[in-house]
């Protein structure tokens, strides 16, 4: 059955987008180490509800690391201390009895807090809407192997496409930059033939939209890559940046 631990949680509570928030401390006792971090919060919330207190709001959906809904900072680390996982995949066995955890929402001007640990990540959708798509007619699904794309190329494009848009890169970046997100979304299409016709316009529109939304610039600290639950490489930033500079200064877009 595993051991149980007791923790002190310092959780950011904010009743609404315009309300003033503050940290609230909760003691959580006898938590099984076999449950996930979100399940631990579920237990806390159950207790808060029974005590007539508003539960801690946090975003979640699939709870298996593929939807990108969950995510907050645990002791300054996006999605908690584990590499390559979302916070729903984080288990309590990662913590020791008596640990003190500071739980805060993603902090970025482009990610306003909606409530407690829930932030509005619509800015990421706006970046996609600025150009993260193909508007050319690709026709029906082609025959297998009709379009020659090497396996390595397809795999690499998928590495970038694995981005779930959780916002951890923005949260972990000292500049709250969305460069990794934007560059991965640019890169997945730039790898494949279908993405070529709009390649230059796409990167210019998406990068400029990212800047206009109030995200920061890249200082190449590489915190984004370390925080990414899908372990998306910072090489995508270099690639998209080269595309951007080429589009701007060579093609004169």
């Amino acid at each position: 059955m595993g051991d149980t631990i007791s923790l002190t949680l310092e959780v950011w509570r904010q009743p609404g987008p315009l309300a003033k928030g503050r940290f609230q401390t909760y003691e959580v006792k006898d938590v099984s180490q076999n449950i996930s971090f979100l399940e631990m919060l579920d237990l806390l919330n159950q207790r808060l509800i029974s005590e007539g207190i508003e539960p801690v709001h946090f975003e979640h959906d699939c709870r298996e690391g593929i939807c990108g809904s969950c995510g907050f900072m645990i002791n300054g680390q996006a999605h908690g201390p584990d590499l390559g996982t979302t916070v729903c995949q984080l288990h309590m066995r990662r913590f020791k009895n008596g640990d003190h955890l500071v739980v805060e929402p993603w902090r970025a001007r482009a990610f306003p807090v909606i409530r407690d640990l829930v932030v509005d990540r619509a800015s990421l959708d706006k970046i996609i809407a600025a150009g993260g798509y193909n508007s050319v007619n690709c026709g029906n699904a082609p025959d297998a192997n009709a379009m020659p794309i090497g396996r390595d190329t397809a795999e690499e494009a998928f590495d970038a496409a694995a981005c779930i848009g959780c916002g951890a890169c923005v949260a972990a970046c000292k500049n709250a930059s969305a460069m990794l997100f934007t560059s991965a979304k640019v890169g997945q299409l730039a790898m494949l033939p279908q993405g070529q016709p709009e390649r230059s316009h796409r990167v210019v529109r998406m990068y400029d939209e990212m800047q206009a939304l109030g995200f920061g610039a890249c200082s190449w600290t590489q915190d984004c890559e370390a925080a990414c639950p899908k372990e998306i490489s910072v090489k995508w930033i270099s690639r998209a940046k080269r595309d951007y500079l080429k589009a701007r200064f060579k093609e004169g877009l």
């Binding site: 500049n175 915190d223 925080a227």
Partner: peptide, 18 residues
């Protein structure tokens, strides 16, 4: 611009997974 991007509230605790 980078300093403004963090928004009105910063983090209480800082860390990295690097």
């Amino acid at each position: 611009d980078n300093a403004r991007a963090r928004g009105p509230a910063g983090y209480k605790k800082h860390g990295t997974k690097q």
